[in-house]
Simulated scan of single mutants.
Amino acid sequence: MPPDTDSPAPDAGRCPLCAGRNGCAMELQRLTGQVQPPCWCTGASFPPDLLDRIPAADRGRACICAACAAPTVP
């Protein structure tokens, strides 16, 4: 199901699971216009059960933070 476009967009700099800063390099680049190195998350694997915890309206709109992903980061 696509994200609910009637609800306000989540802060892309915050984790959709804990609302902490997610350290997303892609979001930093979008905000500043300054090229960033690849984000840590591009090398991480996120199991379906972790992704399923993200509220449906927030899926694909903000990165999970390293702390929430810790059990899955290689």
Rank of each mutant, 00 (worst) to 15 (best):
M1F: 04
M1C: 07
P2L: 10
P2M: 05
P2Q: 11
D4F: 07
D6H: 14
S7D: 07
S7C: 05
P8M: 08
P8H: 14
A9D: 15
A9S: 14
A9G: 12
P10D: 13
P10M: 07
P10W: 09
D11H: 09
D11K: 06
D11E: 09
A12Y: 02
A12S: 15
A12F: 03
A12M: 11
G13D: 09
G13N: 13
R14F: 00
C15L: 11
C15K: 12
C15Q: 04
C15D: 06
C15F: 12
P16V: 11
P16A: 04
A19E: 08
A19Y: 03
G20F: 02
R21G: 03
R21T: 02
R21Q: 03
R21N: 00
G23I: 00
C24R: 02
A25R: 13
M26D: 14
M26E: 11
M26R: 15
E27M: 02
Q29D: 12
Q29H: 06
R30D: 15
R30K: 13
R30F: 10
L31H: 05
T32D: 07
G33K: 01
G33Y: 02
G33T: 12
Q34V: 10
Q34R: 03
V35Q: 12
V35A: 15
V35M: 02
V35R: 10
Q36S: 05
Q36H: 07
Q36D: 06
P37L: 12
C39H: 03
C39D: 12
W40L: 06
W40T: 06
W40A: 10
C41W: 07
T42I: 08
T42N: 00
T42W: 09
T42F: 04
T42A: 05
T42H: 04
G43V: 05
G43F: 03
G43R: 15
A44W: 10
A44T: 14
A44F: 04
S45M: 07
F46M: 13
F46H: 04
P47T: 02
P47G: 01
P48K: 11
P48D: 14
L50E: 06
L50S: 05
L50A: 10
L50K: 05
L51S: 01
D52L: 08
R53Q: 15
P55I: 02
P55C: 07
P55G: 07
A57L: 01
A57C: 07
A57H: 14
D58F: 01
D58P: 00
R59F: 03
R59S: 08
G60E: 04
G60N: 12
R61T: 10
A62H: 04
A62S: 15
A62L: 04
C63K: 00
I64V: 15
I64F: 09
C65G: 07
C65K: 06
A66L: 05
A67M: 03
C68N: 09
C68G: 09
A69D: 03
A69F: 05
A69Y: 08
A69M: 09
A69I: 03
A69E: 00
A70H: 13
A70V: 02
A70Q: 14
P71M: 06
P71F: 04
P71N: 05
T72Y: 15
T72E: 11
V73W: 10
V73G: 00
P74Y: 08
P74W: 04
P74S: 11
